[in-house]
């Protein structure tokens, strides 16, 4: 789902580019406020981590393998703002150095994977933390659901962009069902790995899990 150049037309790419700039700007401010001078190294580490973890492929069948998107995991580990920055940086580096995702499509990719992926996970996780009892296993359950849902939601972001600026070759229904279907499967893999990783971290270094130690706040306030 790293969109290459030419997949979505130029005006749409520009609009989502602008939206992504705005979204990243919000997280730049938020991360500075939330993490002071540790913002850069922490987000940098998470970026490396996502980059590395994206190399772990897990089979989803039919000859393809999915790899972690990492947005939800990053959100639970370091909070939404640092997670947005980390995923954004991963996408910049992948586009510039690995030709993974087009440079003109960077705004589209940042919008789906960083903004939609992370914030949808955050909202869902926040809601679950409010409902569920304040115990460690709730963090695991919360990350599971957040990861499970954030992947197909990010895929829906792609379908929206395709609807606005893609070609009309395939009907939207077909694109939606294909993208949504595969990404529900990938989401299941993502959910298991995210939840298991969080639980493995909770049992050894729970101080590193933002979603556990962070006080519960509404998304608007953070």
């Amino acid at each position: 789902m790293h969109i290459p150049d030419g997949f979505i037309d130029a005006p749409t790419s520009a609009i989502f580019g602008a939206a992504s700039v705005a979204g990243v700007a919000v997280s730049l401010r938020g991360a500075r406020k939330q993490l002071d001078e540790r913002a850069a190294p922490l987000a940098g580490l998470v970026a490396v981590f996502i980059f590395a973890v994206q190399m772990i492929n897990f089979p989803v069948g039919a000859g393809t393998s999915g790899h972690l998107m990492g947005g939800a995991l990053a959100m639970v580990l370091v909070g939404p703002h640092a997670a947005v920055l980390a995923v954004t940086v991963v996408l910049i580096v992948q586009a510039l150095m690995f030709a993974d995702g087009g440079l003109s499509a960077l705004g589209l990719n940042v919008f789906n994977l960083a903004l939609v992926g992370v914030w949808s996970a955050y909202v869902l996780y926040g809601l679950l933390r409010l409902i569920l009892p304040k115990v460690r296993s709730s963090v695991v359950v919360g990350s599971f659901v957040a990861a499970l849902v954030s992947v197909p939601v990010a895929a829906v972001g792609f379908v929206g962009q395709y609807a606005i600026g893609g070609s009309e070759v395939f009907g939207l229904g077909a694109v939606f069902s294909a993208m949504f279907g595969t990404h529900v499967l990938i989401g299941i893999g993502e959910a298991f790995i995210t939840a298991l990783t969080v639980s493995s971290l909770l049992s050894s270094r729970q101080d590193l899990v933002f979603g556990w130690k962070a006080p519960l706040r509404s998304p608007v306030e953070v």
């Binding site: 990243v24 850069a40 940098g44 580490l45 970026a47 920055l85 980390a86 940086v89 580096v93």
Partner: peptide, 8 residues
């Protein structure tokens, strides 16, 4: 901040 994150 983004430059720093990339550098890390």
């Amino acid at each position: 901040l983004l430059v720093q994150i990339v550098s890390f």
